[in-house]
């Protein structure tokens, strides 16, 4: 009997620390919002909130996809470049093809993800290097097809893209779509076997393979989910900016990874949740738009972002296992 109660107590403790670290990311986003609100109450005005929600949609999509790659313990640096590429292609061809551009871009995303996943699993290359090379390839394609500059979607075709930024029940349609996709990703994470094997690969790749998990399928699926999400994020950027911008994704890849890490997903793999990523992205967006609202000088922005990132990641980081090795 004594043993059983001890066991129960141990279990209870584990659940407690786990649930605390789960809510830590919510605490940090509230903290950030509160600080900006105290400095300038306009931060929570209707206009500003709507602007932030619109800003949030594509980055959330990007980060949601990257979450799955981080689950496997890999990394996808090419997300930003894929987003620039699809942003350019959407902007250029939407007046010829119309709305059919969106499924085409999804197909492109699937193809990119399959190529990445194939290279990683078949030749046993590190995902870091494969996606790094993919970055230079897709960035280059974006630059070549756009001719180096941004191009505005013609005014008579604007009806094809305007609906995405229009508010529905106070929230932009774009964000509704993104939330639906995040919901789908959460469903995949909770209820499918493939997501279990993705997490297993991240936790311990050798053990997962010995247990009979199809690690190849898991890794390819994760890369594909990520590329599809990045491709869609690029489409949303084109809808939001109403033009094709070839270098839009350059800073986004690393920023999205930082947002996922802010949500408490471990870069070593095997841990985290898509829902936490929402809080991470909200923190990043709140910081960047908050700094515009309280008029931080442009020269100071980098420094403030860096400091907030360190503090927020430290708050969210899992402090349960002191013996866990952090690379």
């Amino acid at each position: 009997m004594k043993k059983l109660s001890e066991f129960k107590l141990g279990n209870l403790k584990k659940i407690n620390t786990e649930s605390i670290s789960k809510y830590m990311c919510l605490i940090s986003v509230t903290l950030v919002v509160l600080i900006f609100f105290v400095i300038n109450p306009k931060f929570l005005s209707l206009y500003s909130i709507q602007n932030m929600l619109l800003e949030m949609a594509p980055l959330l999509l990007l980060a949601g996809g990257i979450t799955f790659v981080l689950f496997t313990g890999g990394i996808d640096l090419s997300a930003g470049a894929v987003a620039s590429c699809t942003c350019v292609l959407t902007g250029l061809y939407i007046d010829n093809i119309g709305g059919w551009i969106v499924p085409l871009m999804i197909v492109l995303g699937v193809v990119i993800g399959l190529i990445n996943g194939f290279l990683i699993t078949a030749f046993k290359l590190p995902s870091f290097i494969v996606t790094l090379c993919a970055t230079s390839i897709w960035k280059c394609i974006a630059l070549i097809s756009s001719g180096g500059g941004s191009k505005i979607i013609p005014l008579d075709k604007r009806y094809l893209v305007n609906w995405a930024s229009a508010p529905l029940l106070g929230i932009p349609v774009m964000l509704w779509m993104t939330l639906a996709i995040i919901g789908l990703l959460y469903f995949i994470q909770r209820n499918t076997t493939v997501s279990k094997s993705i997490l297993a690969v991240g936790a311990n790749a050798r053990a997962a393979r010995m247990a009979g998990t199809n690690t190849v399928k898991a890794q390819i699926t994760a890369m594909t989910i990520c590329s599809v999400c990045s491709a869609l994020a690029g489409v949303l950027y084109a809808f939001k900016m109403k033009s094709s911008v070839p270098n839009i994704g350059d800073p986004l890849g690393l920023m999205a990874i930082a947002a996922v890490a802010l949500g408490g997903t471990s870069l070593a793999g095997g841990k985290g949740s898509v829902l936490n990523t929402i809080a991470g992205v909200a923190t990043i967006i709140a910081v960047t738009s908050g700094m515009n609202i309280i008029n931080v000088h442009a020269l100071w922005k980098d420094i403030v972002i860096g400091v907030i990132l360190i503090i927020a990641v430290f708050i969210n980081s899992d402090k349960t296992g002191k013996d866990v090795i952090i690379k």
């Binding site: 690393l254 860096g306 430290f314 952090i326």
Partner: peptide, 9 residues
């Protein structure tokens, strides 16, 4: 904190 994030910041 993972070196990837801390060195990015």
């Amino acid at each position: 904190i993972a070196s990837f994030i801390i060195s990015y910041a």
